[in-house]
């Protein structure tokens, strides 16, 4: 079972976590065309590679970011979200 390190609670079994998807910047709803908005809502980046992802440590409800290489199944680092898109 994979180990994920919560920035606040430390390394735990992956079963203590919920995955929240890749961090994707929301386009300005007022400026985006219907197609651009639909792309944001429905499409995801499926290519393997290093991604910044939302993860939540569920016993403590701690949301954080995991930088994960989905090609090698390696978690490179985890950190609290600071506001960059």
């Amino acid at each position: 079972m994979k180990i994920m390190t919560c920035p606040i609670n430390g390394p735990r079994a992956i079963t203590e976590f919920a995955y929240g998807g890749e961090i994707r910047p929301m386009p300005d709803p007022a400026a985006a065309s219907d197609d651009q908005w639909a792309d944001y809502v429905f499409n995801r980046n499926g290519a393997p590679g290093v991604k910044q992802e939302w993860w939540c440590h569920t016993p403590s409800n701690t949301w954080f970011v995991a930088e994960r290489d989905t090609e090698r199944d390696a978690i490179l680092r985890t950190y609290l979200y600071t506001g960059e898109a």
Binding site: A18, G20, W54, C56, T58, N61, W63, Y81, G83
Partner: peptide, 9 residues
């Protein structure tokens, strides 16, 4: 959980 995520942003 999801509301907590929204407010994190």
């Amino acid at each position: 959980r999801e509301l907590s995520r929204w407010n994190t942003i």
